[in-house]
């Protein structure tokens, strides 16, 4: 080791000592963070599975193998399979128009998209009751034509779409704004059709964020409780989604089954967070290679 590196090392250590805290302060802060997270994060997470497995593995599995539980799981999957593609389509379209064009009223549009996040879930359900309920705007007409929206699948789907509208689009807008318009403009000037530009330039650029947006939207769609609770009517085997089924089991003092179904939803949430962590690592790629030269290079490799 020569003298220069020793001095450089010392210099670095000195600089770092200036901008960090004493060992005691550091350890106390880490301990405080851990204590708080243990109380509010680790213990609840562990408790879901502990409560679910309290009656043994047979009782756990048995919680899913009955008519009502299976119906709830089927309904939840059905609702998500309608809601998620619609909100993904909306998310891509809205993010495209907001990130790639300048027009009057853009800020109002963004505020409008964010609105469902600000609204209480109970109110998200209430507004559909006011529209489609018997005393609502369309209620009498729907009753005359024997169309059921409230306390049936369409109502649950609508309330779930409302609650999850912002999730895909909010993941895409910042990314698409930071990527700029040059690549798409180049594709169009070189003669690509709109669809070619979208599938070969835009989609590859946004795929990771789109994936995370879709998975987050899915988790929220499957887990929505308040809004769905208002519009579903809680009809067993017919309009009970998984979260509503959890509520019913819990209120019947069937804690093991309630936590068993809850543990499925918890796994879904944990997987969602894992995907987020992976996507965040992947997403560093497009932002780092954002300079025009390396873009040309990656473009030619593709």
């Amino acid at each position: 080791m020569n003298a220069v590196t020793i001095i450089a090392d010392k210099d670095l250590q000195w600089k770092e000592s200036l901008t960090t805290e004493s060992v005691f302060v550091r350890r106390s802060l880490i301990a405080a963070a851990f204590l708080y997270l243990t109380l509010f994060l680790f213990i609840p997470l562990a408790a879901v599975f502990a409560e679910a497995l309290k009656g043994g593995i047979l009782a756990y599995v048995g919680s899913f193998l009955n008519e009502d539980a299976l119906a709830a799981i089927r309904l939840t999957l059905l609702v998500a399979s309608v809601v998620v593609p619609l909100n993904a389509l909306f998310g891509v379209a809205a993010a495209w128009v907001i990130a790639k064009f300048d027009f009057v009223g853009k800020q109002i549009l963004i505020t409008l998209i964010d609105m469902p996040l600000a609204v209480s879930p109970v109110i998200s359900g209430l507004i559909y009751v006011l529209l489609f309920g018997l005393q609502g705007w369309f209620g009498p007409w729907l009753a005359d034509h024997d169309i059921k929206i409230l306390f049936a699948l369409p109502g649950i789907v609508l309330a779930t779409i409302f609650v999850t509208v912002p999730f895909v689009v909010r993941e895409l807008i910042p990314l698409m704004q930071s990527q700029g318009r040059e690549e798409e403009e180049a594709a169009i000037t070189l003669g690509a059709s709109g669809w070619q530009m979208f599938t070969r330039v835009t989609l590859p650029n946004i795929k990771w964020s789109l994936l995370y947006g879709v998975i987050l939207c899915n988790a929220r769609a499957m887990g929505e409780f308040g809004a769905v609770s208002v519009v579903s009517g809680h009809i067993r085997g017919l309009t009970n989604t998984m979260p509503l089924h959890v509520e019913i089991l819990y209120n019947e003092y069937n804690a093991v089954s309630a936590f068993a179904v809850a543990s499925l939803l918890t796994l879904l949430a944990v997987v969602t967070l894992a995907v987020k962590a992976i996507v965040e690592r992947k997403a560093h790629f497009p932002t780092i290679v954002a300079d025009p030269i390396s873009n040309v290079q990656t473009g030619s490799i593709r």
Binding site: A47, G223, P243, Y250, A258, A262, A269
Partner: peptide, 11 residues
Amino acid sequence: ALPTAVSGITL
């Protein structure tokens, strides 16, 4: 990310 009903019964 956790459904609110799950947080509710767990807490």
